[in-house]
Simulated scan of single mutants.
Amino acid sequence: MTVMSRILNSIVAVCPDMGIGKNGNLPWHPIRLSNEFKHFQKMTMTPLVEGKKNVVLMGRKTWFSIPAANRPLKNRINIVLSRELNTAPEGAHYLASDFSSALHLLDSSELEKQVDQVWIIGGSAVYKFLVRFPGVPTGVQEENGVQYVFEVYESTDH
């Protein structure tokens, strides 16, 4: 089986010191940033090709940080990465032991025709494989007293 070349997108919200989480929650917990959440939903849920679905690829800790009632993330194919689990956690669509296995899974006959965009959504162990290029900030956002910035990073090393 040949692995096709695929663009991987990643999305992450960080606080000013580049933190992405704290004690299994987002850094600004319990404050809720609805615009930031809507942006995440829109980006990860909206396929570019009608009739296909986007994939959200996440580590085990990120999966279990999502409230059980919200798992799996709806209208997306949820793939959990874990070296520890032997079977996909309840609600997850697929389990992969590492990035390479996840990419092979995307090219399987079962998924290849369904999948549009692939979104890496965390956490830190999963993001570490990405190379960060200078981003394109769209300015400082402020919501409920919390400031944040949307940036786009592109990696072509896949």
Rank of each mutant, 00 (worst) to 15 (best):
F64K: 07
K53F: 01
H39F: 12
S108G: 03
P16N: 11
L33V: 07
E110L: 05
G91K: 04
L73A: 07
G51Y: 06
R60F: 01
C15V: 08
L105N: 01
M58D: 07
G24D: 05
P47A: 11
F37G: 10
N70T: 04
A69Y: 10
D17P: 00
L130R: 11
L26R: 11
Y148D: 03
L85W: 08
M58Y: 07
T44R: 00
V152A: 08
G122I: 01
S65E: 13
I66L: 11
E36W: 15
A68W: 13
I66V: 11
N35P: 01
I120H: 00
P67K: 06
F150L: 09
N70R: 09
I20P: 02
I120C: 00
I120K: 01
H158P: 04
T156Y: 11
Y153T: 12
E36H: 13
G122R: 01
N78A: 03
L8G: 02
V131I: 12
V80L: 05
N25K: 15
K61P: 02
P16K: 15
M45G: 07
A68K: 14
P67A: 10
V56D: 01
E84P: 00
K128W: 03
R71C: 05
M58A: 04
D157T: 07
P30S: 13
L111Y: 12
R71H: 10
V12Y: 08
P137A: 15
K61Q: 01
G21S: 06
I31R: 09
R76H: 09
A13W: 09
K128H: 06
W119S: 00
D98K: 14
G139C: 07
S5F: 08
Y94S: 03
D17M: 13
M1C: 12
I121S: 08
K42I: 08
S101G: 12
I66W: 07
L85Y: 05
I77L: 06
W63N: 06
E84A: 13
V49T: 14
W119C: 00
S109D: 15
F40T: 05
R71V: 07
I77V: 12
S65A: 09
K128D: 05
S97R: 14
I77P: 02
E90V: 04
G21A: 08
V3H: 08
K61G: 05
E112S: 13
E151T: 12
V115I: 12
V136R: 07
D157S: 10
S65P: 06
P67S: 09
M58P: 14
E90P: 00
N144Y: 12
A92I: 13
K42C: 04
L48A: 08
V14Y: 11
S155W: 12
R60E: 04
D17F: 09
D17Y: 10
H29I: 03
V12M: 14
E36T: 14
G24F: 14
Q117N: 08
L73W: 14
K42Y: 11
L103T: 10
I79E: 01
H104R: 15
V126L: 15
K52V: 02
T44V: 02
G91A: 07
S10L: 15
T156I: 08
T44L: 05
